[in-house]
Design a protein around this nucleic acid. Structure first.
Lengths: 249, 249
DNA sequence: AAGTGGTCTAGACCACTGG
DNA sequence: CAGTGGTCTAGACCACTTA
């Protein structure tokens, strides 16, 4: 047969399962895993076995298995075999969205009030984290974000000037620091810390909440290669904001 | 040439870049994106162009591009082309680990105290969320987890009996509810909500904290297919616990 | 030595988009 | 129509593990 499609019968062929062959193989295995057909750690059919079972080429079943592995559903070891992944590791991932994107996607109005936008000498601890000389100037912004007039986030941010020399020229009532910083930078990595804490006196005032109200505090450090780009402290009133996410294996 | 390797020159050939060809193509594009060679939204080389440039087969560049898309770095549209992904979406993912795993991986001691472990008639709201008849019995556990003797998490959990009939027989001082529930279930999905809030009076007492201390509250609903397995409210003292995570594109 | 996964190729057909 | 991505194949060579 010259090609998989050229050789197909001219009839519409009641396809056993719709979709591309690699997807059918993948779906079959996924269903088996969901049904507990293979206990975690148990050996699963080899590529050769699946080739025989489905009558497809090895590349096709290989792709199905490769994707299942990238989804964390199976473990594969060269020379050994494919195994159902032990799902004991209940670590999962949560999606964090950009606040402004979140607000506008809800169809609500986003508004930003800029309280600080200037260069400042960096305190020692901060200078170390940003990787700049102690006492050298860094950019500092303090912005409060509103959703339909309600203060939702207090964003206290320091930026490494070497990474974004024009940062202070931006109009943060129109675009957000995130947009300004990352519109040109393509690849970066970030560290998060999420905790519950009381706001500082200033934060309570800016967010118009009681000083004792619990707040969700996200600290985000962003790096490009090894240079630190920015450190942000994002404070949200606990009564008005929750991080939500989904996880599907 | 019969095979890519069979046809290779007998010389060791100073390989231009180490690694598999598809990985080289992928890495080349990734580096270009990191360097800003293509502005977000800009058109990138077609598969045919990359085939010519790297002297590899189309399947190979296709795999590289497919993986880049699954990593969210490029967008592809059939009949149109491949484009650098707009990085405006600064949504990122955060890893949530199982608390017990976290404690033991720190080399610390984990301890659990069980305060409630019984079947109860489900309140209306809960019955709806678990998808059981109102007033029917559900399993309820209330467990406090300690790290080296310090209370770190108050776990209030309801379980759908149909999904785990033997749940109440477990010894939760030895294994955790998570382990008991998911040692057999292979595929599931979960919804998270993370917020800052004050503890209830009972929670404050169990966690040995002041009633006004901010707490990090994680509510996790877990489903299998469409049946709800369990709903858990995990309360952590803000002063003792933070969720931490990394994000790399 | 046999079995397994990891990878590559050359060429093919298809569906879709755009001019 | 030409160009693009989406997919499949049959066969190949390799590295690795296990017996």
């Amino acid at each position: 047969m010259v090609s998989p499609h050229a050789g197909a019968a001219p009839l519409p062929l009641p396809s056993p399962t719709p979709g591309a062959p690699y997807a059918r193989v993948k779906q079959h295995l996924k269903a088996g895993l969901a049904a507990g057909r293979w206990v975690p750690g148990e050996r699963m059919p080899s590529e050769a076995a699946l080739v025989a079972e489905f009558g497809v080429s090895r590349m096709t079943v290989n792709r199905a298995l490769r994707e299942l592995r990238s989804e964390g559903l199976v473990l594969r070891t060269q020379g050994v075999g494919t195994f159902a992944a032990p799902l004991h590791k209940v670590s999962s991932t949560l999606t964090i969205r950009d606040l402004q994107e979140e607000i506008t996607s809800r169809g609500h109005q986003h508004q930003a009030v800029v309280h600080v936008q200037r260069a400042e000498p960096a305190p020692a601890a901060l200078a170390a984290q940003l990787g700049v000389a102690q006492g050298s100037e860094v950019f500092h912004t303090l912005i409060v974000h509103f959703e339909n007039g309600v203060p939702l986030q207090c964003e206290d941010r320091y930026v490494n000037p070497a990474c974004a020399p024009r940062y202070l020229q931006a109009d943060f009532t129109r675009s957000t620091p995130t947009q300004v910083l990352f519109e040109s930078t393509a690849l970066w990595r970030a560290q998060y810390s999420i905790e519950a804490a009381r706001p500082t006196a200033q934060e309570a005032r800016l967010l118009q909440i009681a000083p004792a109200e619990p707040c969700l505090v996200v600290v985000r450090r962003t790096f490009s290669h090894d240079a630190a780009i920015t450190i942000a402290r994002l404070v949200h009133p606990g009564s008005r904001y929750a991080l939500e996410g989904q996880f599907t294996p």
